[in-house]
Design a protein around this nucleic acid. Structure first.
Lengths: 221, 221
DNA sequence: GCAACACCTGCATACTCATGTAGGAGAGTT
DNA sequence: AACTCTCCTACATGAGTATGCAGGTGTTGC
């Protein structure tokens, strides 16, 4: 089933020549893989046709010149079908999220074993997103409401207030919200006042921003 | 290294008795696992102390009575440290996101092999988020800008308009935005008018909602 | 040169929102 | 019974926003 597709074309962009040749060696050993290009910078890679011929690109996140992040953005914009797997020694939040937002489909740590790398490439072409469980946790944590730390003075919103805030975030007017909740406009005002107090804001947009930041409300799908 | 932790306590909540006993059989074979409870409904589980004694809970998403989603929410609220792994036959978006938002740390399909289940449990206790690459792709896709379909009539925002929209989403007033962009308030008005036109909205909050939905702007971290 | 486009300014008006003040009804606690 | 908390109604005022109209500049490309 997974061996139905004949050949997977790969490119590598990685400035450290030892790591690069290590990867090459690993990937050359896999019969259904074909390396179409191996570069030490995005500049080099983009000046050839290797990129557009690839199914999957392994890209270092830290590159001289055009960074890995900018590199993914570029590739993803021009060739959305190409799966870029980001590789890094870091697993800190910022890099991961930047890479994902820029269009990377997966995120591997360089300490990954050869089996993991090979599996990651297969996952990537099969429409999956290879990443370590630790990184996956960071990603899904960003969906979940933040833990209220015990020392946090932040007051919690009541259920009703959360309802109102959700509708506010959908861009509904006082009148609409009042209607949908079957209360008066002044009732809506009352709740919004309290929301502003608790979130320490003074406008609807700030409330939405704060609500999203504190994950009281979840971003629309 | 991974065997440093002595015993992992598990609970199972799954209404299909065949699957449940299948899981039990698999997990009993692992020396460092200890099953503290196995239930066919959340109601049953929550009436005992098994849940609070668990490190990891395997929970079916579709349960009679209290659903798996509500179940995770409940467990996560009371015991944030317990890792709940959602199990389902479906891998459609809604269920996955609902589960994640409710506090699940991982999401497995029922067709997972015993090795995958065992690895998932280990990942979960080690702070990872076990999930299939396909599910991971769905999750990370939700971070990336939507693909503009060719048939989409939707006009694109200019760079300047995106800047303005971003600042609007941060709750900044016309005056503040004008200041930060070093243009007049009327300049800001001009851009916002165009944003509303292109997004087909009539208020700031709607614009933010639409911008997030279309991933023109990204949710704050 | 002229059209198309992104960008910017200015002014006017009606509408929505933020905020203060003041009160009442019901549930749950001590 | 007094207290607290959530939920709701009401009215008033100033600030901020939405939208219409009318223009001006600079760049790109035919």
């Amino acid at each position: 089933m997974t061996t139905a597709k004949p050949i997977i074309y790969l490119s590598i962009i990685e400035d450290n020549q030892f790591i690069r040749s290590g990867w090459e060696a690993i990937l050359r050993n896999v019969p259904e893989f074909s390396i179409v290009g191996s570069f030490e910078s995005c500049e080099d890679a983009f000046s050839t046709t290797a990129i557009e011929e690839s199914d999957v690109i392994l890209m270092d996140i830290k590159l001289p010149g055009i960074s890995g992040i900018e590199g993914v953005r570029h590739v993803h914009k021009l060739h959305p079908k190409i799966a870029v797997i980001m590789c890094s020694v870091y697993d800190d939040d910022t890099h991961v999220f930047d890479a994902i937002c820029a269009g990377a489909v997966g995120y591997l740590l360089k300490k990954a074993s050869s089996e993991e790398i090979i599996k990651a490439i297969h996952d990537a072409v099969n429409g999956g997103s290879p990443m370590t469980p630790t990184i996956a946790r960071k990603v899904i944590a960003s969906f979940q409401p933040k833990e209220r730390k015990s020392n946090q003075i932040q007051e919690e919103l009541t259920e009703r207030e959360q309802e109102v805030l959700t509708k506010m975030a959908q861009g509904k007017s006082y009148a609409t919200i009042a209607n949908e909740l079957s209360i008066s406009i002044d009732g809506v005002r009352f709740h919004i006042r309290n929301i502003y107090l608790k979130l320490q804001v003074h406008s609807r947009a700030e409330a939405i921003a704060e609500g999203l930041k504190q994950r009281i409300i979840s971003p629309p799908r």
